[in-house]
Design a protein around this nucleic acid. Structure first.
Length: 781
DNA sequence: GGGGAGCCGTTTTTT
DNA sequence: ACGGCTCCCC
């Protein structure tokens, strides 16, 4: 039975699967059955060589890839043994290990994971505290500098001592970046928080500094496998090298031609380094493609051959040549949308495709707008991938911030988010006072607030702070005996957060309320999923575990694959996926390749690899389109066709143009030898071809489709007898009139005496907090 | 507190 | 074009 599983493999695939011990590098071209080889190899190790699942580690970059691998191995083995495998993303696996080992480096095992927003916010604060110019030291710039340092295994101390790095920062007029890095790291440490990069960086630190820990995991992980190896950074490589050092049973799978994440620290160097570091590396190349038509494969090869310094390989297929690639010139971005939507409609009718057979790929997220409008117009169901994830929504983050504070009160970022939300009279002044003390004494904000009385706080403010602390402590007291949902429910109730959202009756408010309900549902679901044995560890259903889990989740992980919708996404997001029909839009200079990435050969080659990735997503049909002009940054700009189009021989192309609805087929009247590029045909021809019927286009502004957003505030016409009353006489229960919000009832009075705040439930605008010092109110009764 | 005006900066981003 | 942010006013 175990030996059956290798029957369906080709020679190279089988060679890779049969390789048992020692370093193995699989260079797997697009669509060459990479996942199949990985999963079969793991299954074979277990089934044939009787390697214990507990001794196998497989690292991926996405949760989705990890889940798919697990599922496929499970299917092959059919025994449920796969659940004992250690398969996960770099970040989730290392986070899990750090949960057990972080105390070695002075972190609490219940450390918080900072997402990019948290991390940027800490940097912003550090820049402010150092009195640096925040126009110069922008969080994103400084943040990515810090990130690349961590991904390159450079500590703050090493950073500050590195002549070249310091030179570079000085050259960019940001000499204090190293200092910021140092303070940022110290602050994260103080907060008991690790950012995404720390999950790698600290993992490495633990393994290097504590040999007994290293030995433990070297012994545990006798076989190590790495997916998407071309996307690993220096730190990731250093870790897997350490883990595999004892047994050298390390297998990496990757495709240098699909390396598209160098801006996140990934380095193809790791591929060369692998062969240098191990002198007995077995290299297997998977070049047979099982995904795409002959034409698509030919074009992909043509494109990538323009890059220098690739690992020599050439995809081939036994699939039929298939259709030519449609190259479409359109007038505008809107036109591009129309063309694509029309084409999808036509393909569905003529060739019985359904929505889910189509993907629209683009270089930048901003390009999705035109497609959306056109798809909606033709009532074609679609889904946009990417963009704001569920967990990044403000209301969801707010709720999670409460949970984070409960688990780790030292988490300043979470605390700042919620300490005065919903409003409870702990304002800016109080917080600034507390933050100053926190900085002076190098202690977490929470501890400062806890000692509020000694801060010199008095009266209503002191009471508010103490009530807040009491509330958090009440939640914390629940932790030991309650599951995640029960704690979360109490948090929602007692914090006033759920009520706050419930009272907001605007369209957006209702959506926010629903999102929080959905979050609660997901916590309930988490709680009710049995505490299964996973990855060799007993899972628990407490709040801490939940928080840890979701910190590393993205939207794509909750996605329903089978929905019958056209998928829209960036090329980056499309890696690893395949579709029968693919549209790649915006094939224009400065867009694809991006104008930001044409200054060095390295950058340009990465853009080309990106194009290669995009093309190889298609199984049957591929459309490439470029617009004469499009709106960018609110400006109509005209661009040349992408240089990448010139790299595709004409024989593979079927050229079409679209003029705002009327499409004209360009007959092949021009030289169509393989040496004639698309570019020459489209732009080199004297007078012919695309100068053809140009129809005057009325300046189009597509009619708004769908419901108009309801105005945020329902306007109120003040009564003729409106005279502002003395608001110091205001009492709970009174009915009042507000100039803008209309009539409402006073629900609550709070705030300090010098700054009273009334909560008023307005008839047409829901509940609002009104500062009585400013607002004009007429007491009605 | 929160709405409106005005200014800035806008590639990709698995975690 | 558009969203995010700060600053000002009620």
């Amino acid at each position: 039975m175990q030996d059956d599983i290798i029957k369906g493999l080709n020679d190279q695939q089988r060679e890779a699967v049969l390789h048992k011990d020692g370093p193995l590098m699989i260079v797997a071209g697009a669509g060459s059955g990479k996942t199949k080889v990985l999963t079969t190899r793991i299954a074979y190790l277990m089934g044939h060589h009787h390697i214990d699942a507990f001794n196998i580690l497989a690292l991926t970059f996405t949760n989705k890839a990890a889940a798919e691998m697990k599922e496929r191995i499970n299917k092959i083995l059919g025994s449920g043994e796969a659940r004992n495998l250690y398969i996960g993303t770099f970040h989730s696996v290392f986070a899990k290990i750090l949960r057990a080992e972080a105390h070695h480096i002075g972190y609490p095992n219940s450390f918080t994971i900072y997402d990019t927003d948290d991390s940027r916010s800490v940097i912003k604060q550090v820049v402010k505290d150092l009195n640096l110019d925040d126009k110069l030291y922008k969080p994103n710039i400084v943040g990515s500098r810090i990130s690349s340092a961590k991904n390159g295994l450079i500590s703050p101390a090493e950073y500050l001592n590195d002549y070249h790095i310091m030179q570079e920062d000085a050259r960019q007029n940001r000499p204090m970046t190293g200092k910021i890095y140092e303070m940022y790291a110290a602050r994260c440490y103080k907060n008991g928080a690790m950012d995404f990069d720390d999950l790698l960086f600290k993992m490495h630190e633990v393994l290097v500094r504590f040999p007994q820990v290293l030995h433990k995991y070297q012994h545990k992980f006798k076989y190590v496998m790495v997916d998407e190896y071309q996307d690993t950074n220096a730190t990731q490589y250093a870790i897997i090298k350490l883990l595999a050092a004892a047994n050298e049973n390390i297998c990496v799978v990757g495709d240098d031609a699909q390396s598209i994440y160098s801006f996140r620290g990934a380095t193809i160097e790791n591929i060369l380094q692998f062969q240098k570091d191990y002198d007995n590396v077995k290299v297997v190349k998977l070049e047979r493609n099982y995904r795409s038509s002959g034409t698509i494969i030919s074009v992909a090869n043509e494109i990538i051959n323009n890059n220098k310094g690739q690992i020599p390989k050439e995809l081939w297929t036994e699939a039929p040549v298939g259709e030519k690639i449609k190259l479409v010139r359109v007038l505008s971005d809107n036109d591009e949308g129309h063309y694509v939507a029309d084409a999808i409609k036509e393909q569905k009718l003529r060739n019985h495709y359904s929505n889910k057979d189509f993907a629209i790929l683009y270089r930048t997220n901003a390009q999705s707008r035109a497609y959306e409008e056109s798809l909606r117009r033709l009532s074609i169901a679609y889904k946009i991938y990417g963009g704001l994830s569920f967990y990044q929504r403000k209301e969801v983050k707010d709720f999670i911030a409460y949970l984070r504070v409960v688990i780790n009160p030292n988490d300043d970022e979470a605390l700042k988010r919620i300490v005065n939300y919903p409003v409870r009279g702990i304002g800016k002044t109080t917080l600034e006072k507390a933050a100053t003390i926190a900085n002076q004494r190098d202690m977490p904000l929470y501890n400062v607030l806890k000692a509020a009385a000694s801060l010199g706080l008095k009266g209503a403010t002191l009471e508010s702070v103490q009530q807040f602390i009491q509330m958090i402590e009440y939640f914390q007291s629940m932790l030991a005996k309650s599951n995640a949902y029960d704690v979360a429910f109490q948090v929602g109730k007692h914090s006033g957060l759920v009520k706050e959202l419930f009272n907001d009756k605007t369209q957006e408010g209702v959506a926010r309320y629903e999102n929080v309900q959905e979050l609660l549902n997901s916590i309930k679901e988490f709680t009710e999923t049995p505490a299964n044995i996973e990855d060799g560890e007993v899972g628990d259903r407490g709040l801490a575990t939940y928080i840890q889990d979701i910190a590393l989740l993205t939207d794509a992980d909750n996605d329903k694959e089978d929905a019958d919708v056209v998928k829209l996404m960036t090329v980056h997001a499309s890696k690893g996926l395949e579709f029968p029909c693919v549209f790649i839009g915006g094939m224009e200079e400065t867009l694809f390749p991006s104008g930001m990435s044409i200054n060095t050969r390295e950058e340009l080659e990465e853009e080309r690899r990106l194009f290669y990735v995009a093309v190889t997503r298609a199984k049957e049909k591929l459309w490439l389109s470029y617009a004469q002009s499009r709106y960018r940054f609110g400006q109509l700009t005209a661009n040349d066709a992408s240089r990448f189009l010139m790299e595709i021989p004409s024989i593979y192309l079927d050229k079409t143009m679209s003029g705002g609805g009327a499409r004209n087929h360009m007959g092949g009247g021009f030289g169509s030898s393989a040496s004639t590029s698309a570019f020459e045909r489209l732009h080199g021809g004297r007078g012919g071809g695309f100068d053809g019927p140009v129809r005057k286009k009325e300046p189009e502004k597509p009619a708004y489709i769908g419901p108009k957003p309801t105005p945020k505030v329902v306007e109120h016409q003040p009564s003729a007898n409106f005279v502002p009353s003395d608001t110091s006489k205001l009492q709970i229960g009174m009915v009042v009139e507000h100039l803008k919000f209309g009539f409402g009832q006073v629900m609550n009075l709070e705030g300090a005496a010098h700054n009273p705040i009334a909560t008023i439930n307005f008839k047409s605008n829901g509940e609002k907090k009104i500062m009585l010092n400013y607002a004009k109110l007429r007491i009605v009764e």
